[in-house]
Amino acid sequence: MADNPPDYELADRMALTRPDQVKAIGHPLRTMILQLLHERAATVTELAAALERPKSTVAHHVEVLTRNGLLRVVRTRRVRAIEERFYGRTARMFHVAAEPPAAGEQMPTDFNDFEVAARESATAFEQGKLWGFIRHARISKDQAALFWDSMAELIDEFDRLPRSGDTMYGFAIGLYPTNHPTLPTAE
């Protein structure tokens, strides 16, 4: 296994600026494909086997991700008369751009990483294997932005861990404004 996965060059971060890019990562199967490609580049055949889905279905989703700039062919090899393509991510981390989309476009809002994490973590919770914390703090928008940059570094560290062991672990992190109550300013 690579010490610094994956086994191909890619950008650290990529801002998603178009609604079609955001929609592309919102599909659960495409999200799984992106997660698998954190390990190493893979062919559609390898992805289909790992996902236990038909090759044609996986090929469709790979094409959607490629068309939207989230995947690219990182190498090829000749197998008999066919050129086999290995796909890789274009960036370690994708994030929705802070700037508003172009006029007339609207970013999709029909997916939530925490909903995915909640579904994935239910079994771990039932088995007493879920590690989690939730905290609330009244901070400025600038402090929140600086803290998020620190969390992005932690995510990057997690993504770069050497792949080993038999268990796939999920790592969910977020920062969001809430209506959580606050104490009045001390006098």
Score class of each variant (00 low, 15 high):
Glu99Gln: 15
Val62Arg: 14
Arg13Glu: 14
Phe94Arg: 00
Asp142Asn: 08
Ala81Pro: 06
Phe86Met: 05
Asn4Lys: 11
Glu52Trp: 02
Gln127Phe: 15
Glu153His: 07
Asp166Phe: 12
Leu161Pro: 00
Ala118Tyr: 10
Val64Pro: 05
Met107Trp: 10
Ala103Ile: 04
Asp7Trp: 03
Leu65Cys: 02
Ala49Trp: 14
Glu9Arg: 14
Glu153Trp: 01
His95Trp: 01
Ala122Lys: 14
Pro162Glu: 10
Leu10Asn: 03
Glu39His: 10
Tyr169Val: 08
Thr182Arg: 15
Leu29Trp: 09
Thr185Trp: 07
Asp12His: 08
Ala11Val: 05
Ala2Met: 13
Thr182Ala: 09
Leu130Trp: 15
Glu63Lys: 15
Phe114Trp: 07
Gly88Ile: 01
Thr167Asp: 11
Phe125Thr: 11
Glu126Trp: 13
Leu34His: 00
Ser164His: 11
Arg85Gln: 14
Glu187Ser: 15
Ala59Ser: 06
Ala11Gly: 04
His27Asp: 13
Phe94Thr: 02
Asp149Tyr: 07
Arg163Asn: 14
Asn68Gly: 00
Val73His: 07
Ile155Lys: 10
Ala81Glu: 14
Ala152Leu: 14
His60Met: 10
Val79Glu: 14
Arg30Ile: 04
Gln21Cys: 00
Ala91Phe: 00
Asp110Thr: 08
Ser56Asp: 10
Tyr169Gln: 10
Trp131Met: 12
Val22Glu: 08
Ala145Ile: 05
Gln35Lys: 06
Tyr176Cys: 08
Gly26Gln: 00
Ile139Phe: 01
Ala2Glu: 12
Lys141Glu: 13
Phe125Ile: 11
Ile173Asn: 05
Ile134Leu: 14
Thr76Pro: 04
Tyr169Gly: 09
Thr45Cys: 02
Arg92Glu: 08
Ala15His: 07
Arg75Ser: 03
Glu83Val: 12
Glu105Ala: 03
Gln35Asp: 13
Asp156Lys: 08
Ser56Gly: 02
Asp113Leu: 15
Ala144Lys: 03
Ala186Gln: 08
Arg78Phe: 07
Asp110Asn: 13
Thr178Phe: 00
Leu10Thr: 04
Thr182Gly: 01
Gln21Ile: 01
Phe158Asn: 09
Thr43Lys: 12
Leu183Gln: 11
Ala50Cys: 03
Ala15Cys: 09
Ser150Asp: 15
Phe125Pro: 01
Asp142Gln: 10
Arg13Gln: 13
Ala145Trp: 00
Phe111Gly: 06
Asp166Gly: 11
Val74Ile: 04
Asp149Glu: 12
Val58Gln: 02
Ala103Glu: 15
Lys129Ile: 08
Ala117Cys: 03
Tyr87Lys: 05
Gly128Tyr: 06
Ala124Arg: 10
Ser56Met: 14
Met151Ile: 12
Ala59Met: 07
Lys129Phe: 09
Thr57Cys: 02
Glu46Asn: 04
Leu130Ile: 12
Arg92Phe: 06
Asp113His: 14
Arg89Cys: 01
Phe158Leu: 10
Arg72Ala: 05
Asp159Arg: 11
Glu46Trp: 01
Asp110Met: 03
Glu99Pro: 12
Gly174Phe: 15
Arg160Asn: 10
Phe94Pro: 00
Ala2Tyr: 11
His136Met: 09
Met1Asp: 12
Ile155His: 06
Glu46Gly: 04
Ile173Ala: 05
Phe111Ile: 08
Arg75Pro: 05
Leu70Arg: 03
Ser121Asp: 02
Val64Cys: 07
Leu29Phe: 05
Leu29Tyr: 07
Pro6Lys: 04
Gly26Ala: 01
Thr90Ala: 01
His38Trp: 06
Trp131Lys: 13
Gly104Cys: 02
